[in-house]
Nucleic acid binder design. Structure first.
Length: 270
DNA sequence: CGGGCACCAGTCCTATGCGA
DNA sequence: TCGCATAGGACTGGTGCCCG
């Protein structure tokens, strides 16, 4: 881990415990390592000295605790709770997979060929999978709402994900840190346009795209209309249905901004 | 059954950097 | 030095769940 930077976020005792914990997890056999590693990453925020009562977008900005605010946390307790939940989730998933294999009468080897996980920028998808996909379901970033890289800033201190936080931050579509930029909307629509072009390219003829789009109240333009007209005019997509749902602000009531409306749009490649 | 507290695709304000 | 644009920091407050 990056000790120098981590000392600004974690109590020394917490830091030592996390180092030992990570060592133990990474020695585990592959079958369980990923689940436990996910638990490890997801407890970093709670083990840090950041105040507990903060919205998650808050850590998107660089708010390192002051030295006098560094506090100790019960690493083992937090880890055990999290890993228990995630392991239960994994077991339930495995049971569903087993059931599916039995229903379909296929072997685990065949089943594994159904599932491929790849990491890629939606604006530059692989040509290998061109015209092979039946359906794409995606919830792209809402414009100017969240810094997804920054919200995981602590993860980058513990693992090399192949790119730096700064690099990933610059690649994000419509991030929170650009929320005051005058051409935010233009940039967002351009990036969404690139992504949609790539999605259309991987879809089979007649394949479907389901898009979930948030409508930030501060947005000047009608984001859904922009996307729909883009899909109609410049891409080979027909609009099948659009649903509109209002977000009930039961957790967080604000008189002005926020995301109050979400659209679910279903397109078909013509 | 009621008080406290975690939760939240939050907002608002100001320091900073840069060009004229 | 001023004005503008942006990055970063400080902070709200209602709802439901949990626990005594």
């Amino acid at each position: 881990p990056n000790y120098e930077e981590n000392r600004g976020w974690f109590h020394p005792t917490v830091l030592n415990k996390l180092v030992v914990l990570k060592g133990l997890i990474w020695e585990e056999e592959l079958k369980v390592r990923d689940t436990l590693a996910l638990a490890f990453f997801s407890i970093l925020r709670d083990c840090s000295s950041l105040p507990m009562r903060k919205p998650y977008t808050y850590i998107a900005d660089n708010v390192k605790p002051k030295p006098e605010d560094i506090v100790e946390r019960d690493v083992l307790k937090i880890y055990l709770e999290k890993s228990k939940k995630l392991t239960a989730g994994r077991v339930a998933y495995e049971e569903q997979c087993t059931e599916l294999m039995r229903e379909q009468g296929i072997s685990p080897q065949e089943f594994n060929q159904w599932l491929v996980v790849k990491k890629a920028d939606a604006r530059h998808l692989s040509e290998e999978i061109s015209s092979t996909v039946d359906c794409v379901v995606t919830s792209p970033p809402y414009m100017g709402v969240t810094d997804n890289a920054g919200a995981h800033r602590l993860w980058y201190l513990w693992h090399d994900f192949g790119s730096t936080l700064q690099e990933d931050k610059m690649l994000e579509i419509g991030p929170r840190w650009k929320r005051k930029k005058q051409n935010l909307e233009q940039e967002y629509i351009e990036d969404m346009s690139k992504s949609l072009q790539q999605i259309v390219a991987v879809l089979k003829d007649g394949g479907y795209l389901c898009l979930i789009i948030g409508e930030p109240q501060r947005a000047k333009a009608d984001i859904l209309q922009e996307i729909v007209s883009l899909a109609r005019k410049r891409l080979d997509l027909d609009v099948c249905r659009t649903y509109r749902r209002t977000i009930h602000k039961k957790w967080f009531a604000h008189p002005t901004g926020g995301v109050s409306v979400e659209h679910i749009a279903v397109f078909q490649r013509s």
